[in-house]
Structures are given as C-alpha cells and as structure tokens.
Nucleic acid binder design. Structure first.
Lengths: 224, 224
DNA sequence: CGCGGCATTGACCGAAGTCAAACCAGGTGG
DNA sequence: CCACCTGGTTTGACTTCGGTCAATGCCGCG
C-alpha cells in the first residue's frame, strides 16, 4: 500500500487555506494489543497508520479468528469510502499512531484532486491484490510455502521492494499473529519457523526477521 | 454485487446525447470453459457480466488453482479502475455475455455522476467483503462449514437475499469449481455434498441446488 | 455401442491439529 | 541479587481432517 497521509496533506496544501473543502485530519495513539476500531462500528472515517503495526481481522462467534492483512506505517484503510460499517476489526500489534480523515471530506477532496484519486486507487489495488494472494496461499499453498510467502511480502513492503539478505528488519508479529494470518495454529507456526531457521532460509525471532537466503525464500514462496 | 450495466446506461442517458463523455460499451459472448480474460492482460476495460456464470481465479506455476469469486449476472469487475494489469484470470463456467466499458470513459463519467460513484462503491465494498469472507472460510472453517457458507452466499445472491427452502436454483458449478473455491479436492467436495444431501440440508446435483433446511444451512455456515 | 467427462466410494496416507509438558526471557517485588 | 511469575516459544506423543490413488458408476453423445 502507498503512503497516504502525505498525499492528503499535499492535496490540502495545493488547494490552499481559502478552500472550505480542506480535509480535516486528527491523529491519535493506541497502545499495543488494543482495538483500534471494532467490527460493526460506523465507518465514517478513512484511517491511515502513521507509526507502528496493526492487524485487520475477523472473528467467528466461537472465537476462531482470521487476520486479513498487516497494516504498516503509511497504509490506508479506505473501506469507509465504500461502505457504511466496518466488516472487520483492527488491532494494534505495537503501540500505533493513527490518522483519521472524515469520509465526506475525503470524498469531496477526491473530486477535484486527481493526485489523491490516484493515491486511493493505488491503495485499493494493493489491498485487493494482497488479500487475494492470501486467498491463494490459504487455499493452495502448504504451511511452509504460506509462511515464506507472508514473510517475503512483508520484507518487500518493509524495504521498499529492495530486500537485502542478512539484514535485520524489526518484526513485532508474534507466532500467534502469524498463525491467524496463515490459518495455522501457533504450534505449527513454531515448527515451520524453526525449520526455516535451521535450513538457513530466514530467521524470525526476538522481534526481528533476518533473511538468510533471498533466493531460497522466493523459491519456496512461489512468488508469482 | 450490484447490477451494473443498468447504472452505467442510466448514467449515459441522464447526460444526454450531446455529451462527448458518454460511456461507450460493447457486449460480447464467450462459450462455457473459455477464458474471458487472462492474468497479466492490460486492464483498460471495466467488465460486467450480463448473462451466465464466471469465475475469477489465480493459478500457481505448477498448476495449483484457486478461484477467488463467482461472477453472476449483474456483477462488475472494477479492477481496471484501480490498476493497469489484471492479477487474475476469468473463466466462463456457462456460456456468458460480457459487457465492457472503456476505463477512461467510466472514470470521466464518475466525476459528474454521483449515482454511478455510488454504484461502483457498492460493488467494490461487496467484492471486498466477499473475498474477505472467503479468507475467513479458508483459514478457519472446516470443509463442511466452508461449503455451506459458499452455497448459502450464492443462494442469497441468486434469490436477492430472499432464500426459499425447497426451491430449485439453477447451479452450473461443477464439483471441481467448488473445490477450487474452497481450497479442497473435488473428491472431498463430493463427500461433503453427499453428506449434506443425506442429512437433508442441501442438495446440489444435476446443475441445480435445492436447500432443504435454510436454518440448518445457516447454522453450519456460521453466517455472521 | 463405446467413449469421455463427471460423480461416488473405499483403502490408505500424511500434513497439520491437539494436548501437555518443558523451556526461556523479561519484569517485579522481596 | 535472586526468586517468582507471566507470556511467548519449543518439543514430543498422539489424533484427525482432508488428500491421494484407484476402481466403479453414471449419463449424454457421437
């Protein structure tokens, strides 16, 4: 997903201070583990993550949980532009800083700001591709492939698509978060991660991720 | 997803024949089993299904395949509005009639047609919810639950959310299509479907689906 | 009549789940 | 400085859901 705050702020500046249509924004902080917003809340704001990691997720009546996607700094939740209520919840993984923009403000602004339209379109496209890749992984990849695919995808986003081997990326996801992303149990995630570590492919531990062999990781992940 | 052709045509009429911005559309037919369009093709048109059933899918290098969603008459593929290339392919399940609209025409039209914006937004929202429900099913539901959830979702769409018991809906999906939607094998889909038939919950056979017990189906599907 | 595509059934297998114990690290309080 | 607690991770023994392979049935069609 594309950095968003920037685009909206830029849009605002371009329009100038005389414009009543300016996009109002408000930033706020939440601590690790807390819900940023909850399923079924009115979706009257577009959200963007400024700092920290968060997870979009859905849970069933009996507590089974599925994480839909990882939100990194710069990521946008444009859902409010399309529907009245959220069909998912968002949980802070680390302490996070969130910016929110009034839905109607953003809509109005989009009408005369092609740049902003472009940004939102890019974000939507990235979102859709990402979640549909997740569908493929869940449906047709093995546990090992799925985990590798997830890690590689995150490494790409963290590094601006310039993944380096033997570089250590901050990685706050716990094994249960990975489990709920991949549809596995945390026990099995642990097994897979230790395997990958022993095979010198990638090492996820102590809050960081180090890719030892980019080639092998790509190979296993079957990145298309 | 919402009926689309109608909205665009309506939009066109409202603007009047003098308007150079009118949305051009072209309909064409494809026969069952053929590809409507292919992964990696330039996404310069917005597509809508007028007649017949189609499947959006992705396949891996080794042939493993995952269906992303079922396209029914009235459904829209707005992907072209957001990105340059398709990241998925579309296959006709039955003979289908497809309408396509130039991407730039639609974009232009959207700028001064709030009704059209609304329609597209609704379609995007429905798309996103649908595929994210699929993620939940793939990750956290059992085979039986997943199949029931899929069937109930389709029944809802086919009946305009007024599902009736003991009514027979035309249902052209083969077991292998259902398998590629649910991440199962067609052998296991067969087992699940025969179970559901014997349990008098739902009967899928000979190109039609009959729900025997809506309550039980909902129960198993855990529709939220 | 024979063929091809789809569905069904059975025997067996294996990837991932379950349950439970042990381990490890950081944080707190005596 | 250490003892203890808590939450995350690792490991092992065993189970299970769904996959694999293969045979059989079924039906429409040339």
């Amino acid at each position: 997903m594309a950095p968003f705050c920037g685009a909206l702020i830029r849009g605002k500046r371009r329009v100038g201070s005389a414009d009543r249509d300016a996009v109002r924004q408000r930033a706020y902080h939440t601590h690790a583990g807390a819900l940023v917003f909850r399923w079924n809340e009115a979706a009257d704001h577009v959200f963007a993550v400024c700092e920290g990691w968060a997870l979009r997720f859905i849970e069933l009546a009996d507590g089974r949980r599925q994480n839909l996607s990882v939100l990194l700094p710069g990521d946008l939740c444009p859902t409010a532009l399309f529907q009245e209520k959220f069909h998912y919840s968002v949980e802070a993984v680390t302490d996070v800083c969130i910016t929110r923009f009034g839905r109607d403000d953003v809509r109005r602004q989009m009408l005369h700001d092609p740049k902003l339209r472009e940004t939102v379109a890019k974000a939507c496209a990235a979102d859709q591709r990402d979640v549909e890749e997740r569908v493929v992984s869940l449906g047709r990849r093995t546990a090992e492939e799925h985990v590798c695919h997830l890690l590689l995808g995150l490494a790409n986003r963290l590094s601006g698509h310039r993944v380096r081997a033997d570089h250590s990326y901050a990685f706050p996801l716990l094994q249960r978060h990975i489990a709920d992303l991949t549809g596995l149990t945390f026990v099995h995630v642990s097994r897979v991660l230790t395997e990958l570590r022993n095979a010198r492919v990638v090492d996820v531990s102590y809050g960081s991720m180090t890719i030892m062999s980019v080639a092998e990781l790509k190979e296993i992940a079957q990145l298309r």
